[in-house]
Simulated assay, not measured.
Amino acid sequence: MKKLLLAASMAAMMALPTQAADYAIDTQGAHAFVQFKISHLGYSWLYGRFNTFSGNFSYDAAKLAESKIQLTIDTASVDSNHAERDKHLRSADFLNVGKYPTATFVSTKIVPKAADTFDLHGNLTLNGVTKEVVIAAEKLGEGSDPWGGYRAGFAGTTTLTLKDFNIKMDLGPASSTVQLDLTVEGIRQ
């Protein structure tokens, strides 16, 4: 009888709908990245990243549209692998980190698309300006990790127009936009 009750209880628990789980973005293990690329005068690509950021997300595979994410970036951590250029990127010509030391992204809605892809809408605050952006995103995977935890990973891309965020430096039409690439791996809390 006990075995029958246990089996019935387990079956009932498995039939319960899944619920959203909260995840912390794994920046300590370097399993998340905020990177960018911009055309250098139309002749080549300049790549960079932000080394310091934090965030979290709430994710439910069964109710993707109810999922949420928030991210805070330390803009002074910009790293293009060139010290003098990074100093210029931190100046008022670009990121103005003395006045605006952080950039934030807070999701406002998620629109599911085909398979594991979706449009992530949210407010990006950069250089003191808040604008709605849409990130074309995809779920990369989820599951147990070797350390007894559970992880979920996502990647997304969006293109920002520099003047929309009051970035005054004009490097010509080929350099008026920047592609922002995000890869996040979260650890379920």
Results as ranks from 00 to 15, higher is better:
V184T: 05
G172F: 15
A115E: 07
D26K: 04
S144P: 11
Q28M: 12
Q19I: 13
D86I: 02
Y43D: 09
V133C: 12
R85W: 02
Q189A: 09
G156M: 06
A24P: 00
K87E: 12
R188P: 00
L71R: 00
A155D: 08
L4D: 10
V34Y: 00
V134C: 12
V78D: 04
F53I: 06
A61Q: 11
F105D: 05
I135A: 09
L71S: 00
D86S: 01
L124Q: 06
T102Y: 06
A8R: 02
A12T: 10
D145C: 02
G122N: 06
H40W: 14
F118M: 06
P112Q: 05
A155I: 09
A15V: 14
Q189H: 06
V34L: 03
K139Q: 15
T157L: 11
D145Y: 00
V134E: 12
V106C: 04
F118Y: 09
H82D: 10
R151D: 08
T125Y: 07
G143H: 14
S9C: 11
A114L: 05
T161S: 13
E132I: 09
S9H: 01
L89P: 02
V111A: 08
H40P: 01
I38R: 10
K168P: 02
E185I: 03
F36I: 06
N51L: 08
F53Y: 09
S54F: 01
